[in-house]
């Protein structure tokens, strides 16, 4: 009994419940024939939002005003650069991965340097950074569309034990993120900063150091996601990150992470990502177009934030 109540008080449970309902509704409409295929496709596409979402979650946990708008540009640049470096050779796969990670680290450092040196809000710092990164990506991407190495691309598109490999990677990343958040000193620190950055400072937490690491972490995860997405879709496209700007924020919010900061959870991002993709498939199955899909997505986000805000007011 108390276990049920305990479960109900977890904010992430709602996103999973919603995902399950939408899954059933879709499968039921197609007479059950699509159950397996739908699940696999959902896991595949959700995996990418999960990876960027986890990074964005760490940043949002830091408190009001903290948000990383450079996510899509980072994805594009790391995808293009990595593919270029690998140059369709299987032997270069790890080097490409390293390049992607380095791109992430560099952008993360750049982001925080702007925030700190120019004393500008993160939103405008990451925005100006994303302009520059985007240009850099356009410049490197010029010319032919480079394919990913054969081995990498088949890895990214295939399955282990019936589960997409990208979803397994997302699971691995999420597990590490969960341990960081719940068990490590770092997790405590970002939560403390998110609740009150001044109180955190007065409790002896190195606020700047922690925020710096968080912005780097977010950029690295976005870069990793760009690397995987480019390998998965057979090449890097300039607009490949575009939809992940709003998506990364949306899955964090729907997943039950407090927008006001200090309180976040990893499972919710899974529920929200699965849900977001399932809504798309359901509306497609029912024959609705992109317009209705977008409107519903927006209304869901607003409904979630209204419900979450209400909880806060009560407390």
């Amino acid at each position: 009994m108390s276990a049920v109540r305990n479960l109900g008080s977890r904010p992430w449970i709602w996103s999973f419940a919603a995902a399950a309902i939408v899954w059933v509704a879709t499968v039921w409409f197609t007479g059950g024939s699509s159950a397996f295929g739908l699940s696999q496709a959902t896991l595949t596409f959700a995996a990418f939002s999960i990876i960027v979402g986890v990074g964005q979650m760490f940043v949002i946990t830091l408190g009001p005003g903290n948000i990383d708008l450079s996510v899509p540009a980072t994805m594009t640049l790391s995808g293009t650069l990595a593919l270029k470096v690998m140059d369709v050779q299987d032997g270069m796969i790890l080097v490409g991965l390293l390049v992607a990670v380095l791109v992430g680290v560099a952008i993360g450092i750049g982001n925080y340097a702007l925030i700190k040196l120019l004393r500008i809000p993160p939103i405008i710092a990451t925005l100006s950074m994303s302009f520059i990164v985007q240009s850099f990506a356009i410049w490197t991407n010029r010319g032919l569309r480079i394919k990913p190495p054969e081995m990498l691309s088949s890895f990214a598109t295939s399955y282990s034990f019936g589960i997409p490999n990208v979803a397994l990677i997302a699971l691995l990343i999420s597990t590490v993120a969960w341990v960081l958040l719940e068990k490590s000193i770092y997790g405590r620190w970002i939560s403390a900063i998110g609740q009150s950055s001044f109180a955190a400072r007065m409790a002896g937490i190195p606020v700047d150091g922690t925020r710096f690491v968080t912005y780097v972490l977010c950029a690295v995860l976005a870069a990793l996601c760009g690397y995987l997405l480019a390998s998965f879709s057979g090449g890097a496209a300039l607009n490949m990150g575009a939809e992940y700007l709003l998506m990364s924020i949306a899955v964090v919010v729907i997943g039950g992470t407090a927008v006001a900061g200090g309180n976040s959870n990893v499972p919710g991002i899974w529920g929200a990502s699965l849900f977001m993709f399932l809504v798309v498939s359901m509306l497609n199955t029912y024959g609705f177009g992109a317009g209705v899909r977008l409107i519903l997505t927006g209304l869901i986000i607003i409904a979630v934030i209204l419900a979450a805000g209400g909880r806060k007011a009560v407390r």
């Binding site: 939560s191 403390a192 609740q195 009150s196 109180a199 007065m202 409790a203 002896g204 200090g262």
Partner: peptide, 16 residues
């Protein structure tokens, strides 16, 4: 170490 006077403003972490 610092012991805050204004608990709500710079002392407690209310979500914890």
């Amino acid at each position: 170490a610092f012991v805050a006077g204004d608990r709500g403003l710079n002392g407690t972490f209310s979500l914890w």
